[in-house]
Design a binder for these strands. Sequence first.
DNA 1: GGGAAGAGCAAAACCGGTTTAGTGAATCGG
DNA 2: CCGATTCACTAAACCGGTTTTGCTCTTCCC
Lengths: 339, 339
Amino acid sequence: MKRPTIADIARRAGVTKSTVSFALNDRPGVSAATRDRILDIAREMGWQPSRVARALSGGRAGVLGLVVDRPARTLGIEPFFMQLISGIEGELAARDVALLLQMAEDGQTQVAAYRRWWAERRVDGVFLVDLRVDDERIGLLAELGLPAIVIGGPDGLGGLPGVWNDETEAVRSVVEYLAALGHRRIARVAGPPELRHTTARGAAFEAAAGALGLTTLSASTDYTGEEGARATRRLLAAPEPPTAIVYDNDVMALAGLGVAGEMGVPVPGRLSIVAWDDSVLCRLVHPPLTAVGVDIASYGAEVARRLLDLVAGHPVESGCHAAPVLTPRGSTGPAPSGS
Amino acid sequence: MKRPTIADIARRAGVTKSTVSFALNDRPGVSAATRDRILDIAREMGWQPSRVARALSGGRAGVLGLVVDRPARTLGIEPFFMQLISGIEGELAARDVALLLQMAEDGQTQVAAYRRWWAERRVDGVFLVDLRVDDERIGLLAELGLPAIVIGGPDGLGGLPGVWNDETEAVRSVVEYLAALGHRRIARVAGPPELRHTTARGAAFEAAAGALGLTTLSASTDYTGEEGARATRRLLAAPEPPTAIVYDNDVMALAGLGVAGEMGVPVPGRLSIVAWDDSVLCRLVHPPLTAVGVDIASYGAEVARRLLDLVAGHPVESGCHAAPVLTPRGSTGPAPSGS
DNA sequence: GGGAAGAGCAAAACCGGTTTAGTGAATCGG
DNA sequence: CCGATTCACTAAACCGGTTTTGCTCTTCCC
């Protein structure tokens, strides 16, 4: 099956390519009669513009790119990215913009991916996720002049616009919630320390706990369930184990619940569990996990809208998307009286 | 930062665009000296071909497309797709081919997506996943002449090449495994009946159970954890509940385990649970879930290789990728003696 | 030594759009 | 009634590659 081009339309309408182009793009310089005739013919022939040709003639490619750098074994299971992509997608599909996805194992590959996309003129703009402490991507994108929006923030954006969720408040509400239940020793199983995200949340956690005079413990992980399980095992085996653990993602919280079950530690009897990144996963297990999080899909949608604006040439400023909400469920309860 | 074009290179090398093109593509008609000089200049200027321009001049776009049609709330959590995409990606990235991803809520949107990608010349080929019983996409792609490969099979491909995993054998091994443990009433919590995948597995399940004289029960779901939980609740509340349940994906198995816990049904004491689609998820909970599945990432890689071959013009035939493997873990055990 | 073959490159067409410059006719103002 | 504008459209350049055609200069061979 062959695709009609504007030249085909022009031939049938008895005009030139340029007139067809003007008519199809609703630009002045074409009489109403001619315009209608051209539109009719285009519709009848089932014409659709070639994005490739449009992109070449200086127009936009109609493609945005996202590089995800977490290891595949984590990604497969963490709902966050799929939710995020789903939200982004919804916004893009409505405007006939496509999403290019790449998974990169390490930061170097990731930088290379952005650079290649730019050099090959594949994308009009990119999303930046999982900002690191000294992120070389920031400088790269600024240098290339590739429109980009940072998912996360508000610090370290280096001039790039970003969208984030205000976690300070949420962290405090979680800590206060646990303190109100009588917990005095609380632990945090954190994500990779090289992520800005992790350190910011960690600082808020320490500050909130300190303000209430709580003792804190913490462990760093790579976000995988395995490391979440290992960290939990170590925390619970300590002479003075924590009575509550906050996990930096839902997968690790799930793993923590599994370890507690395996070690015979009742939840929430002797251990309370809180998951960051609320997702369906948290509601499926028994007991269901108390969790804190935002609607990730709407987060993705907002980020997508801003990047579309940016690509369109409109000024875009950074902003907060939402404050995460704490949803108490069965995995948290009063601290054991013995401790 | 501006990107160098072959015209820039030609100017610096004192030759024409065509000579540069020939040199850069290793085609005859250029002397070794000129070729080297051109390559040096190109390297020095950091030239990269514009995929857009290449795509326009009859070449390939260097993009493959995947439309995923499960509802976002399932997708977010089901490891399958991320694993699959990860496997596909690995193969594509090595060849500088990009992956276009779209999520479509319903079949109609999905068909529209493929049609639009084709009309806009955005992709060179597409992956087809979650084949339905009467899948209109098959006919569409054949009509459009868009290279496609079906993930799943072997039936209903309508002339399109496909790759699948041989599940008949695996289903039988699961049923025999449960029978050997003394289970006589086994249930299956299946995926959507409109998927070919589901009906094929169901037929194999019934056949295997029938051959061993087992009683079977079954429930249809939409693959979400919620429906998995609901189905489990109904099955367990029956006058004669099954002693083992096989779930069509890992998320529902997880939900089933949660429901069992909630209802006070010990696993594997009174209920054995088997998950299809083995994933990290299965190893994180307590007890860990007995599961059957294949390495999905390598599955994705194989599918990607075949589609790349197809797009390159090489003949590609259908084939089986692997036979799923049963991995017994803690969620299965001897049938309760009382039943 | 003259014709054919072939190497090495230039010139130009092409892909399918967008965009600018140009043209002839109708319209307008004074 | 004539010059200036506007209107509707044509012609052609352009984006950055690929590919075909054509030209020139060697080289080979009888």
